[in-house]
Simulated assay, not measured.
Amino acid sequence: MALASYRSAFAAIASPEYLASRTDATFAERFTTSLDRVRLAERDGAVIGFTMVTAGHLDMLFVDPAAQGSGAGSALLADAEARGACTLESFRDNHPARAFYERHGWRLTRAYDRDVGGGVHACVFYEKAPPTAGDGRQD
């Protein structure tokens, strides 16, 4: 699911060579050392999405393309925020992801170019203030 979601999200952004360099083993290795930072969304016993949060930064949020629109992404994002996620980075041209984050109150704070997978890509950085006492949000 991680590989399919990753390749779907970045098909129009990253080069075919870069996408081909990402394999199931790539994700297995990354997750094996990061299990304490990963949360899963499941439906009928199958994983349909996941997040990884590191020190207040949302490293990854992916939902199986077949499960997008099901509310899994919103639930995963809410969980990540509850775990302290207040920053994230996205490819500038990943318009569906950017619209999703903006709908959930994330604000673009800067744009820049970054070397990703051997190529320079336009990226954007988002921030979201943590909830404060008295803002009406429930814990």
Rank of each mutant, 00 (worst) to 15 (best):
A2V: 01
L3P: 06
A4R: 15
S5I: 00
S5R: 00
Y6L: 11
A12F: 01
A12N: 14
I13S: 03
P16T: 12
E17W: 08
A20F: 12
A20M: 12
S21N: 13
A25C: 07
A28V: 06
E29W: 03
E29H: 08
R30S: 14
T33M: 10
L35R: 15
L35N: 08
L40D: 01
L40H: 02
L40M: 14
E42V: 10
R43W: 06
A46C: 02
V47E: 00
T51C: 05
T51D: 01
T51S: 06
T51L: 01
V53M: 07
V53K: 06
G56Y: 08
H57C: 03
L58V: 11
L58K: 09
L61E: 00
A66G: 02
A66P: 00
A67F: 07
Q68L: 03
A72D: 00
S74I: 00
L77K: 05
L77A: 00
L77S: 02
L77V: 08
L77F: 07
A78N: 10
G84H: 10
A85G: 10
C86K: 11
T87Y: 07
E89I: 07
F91I: 00
A97Y: 11
A99I: 02
F100E: 06
Y101K: 07
E102R: 14
G105R: 01
T109E: 15
D113E: 15
R114H: 13
D115S: 13
G117W: 02
G117L: 06
G118K: 10
V120K: 10
A122S: 15
F125M: 09
F125G: 04
Y126E: 11
Y126F: 14
P130M: 05
T132V: 15
T132F: 13
A133Y: 09
G134E: 10
G134I: 06
G136A: 03
R137N: 12
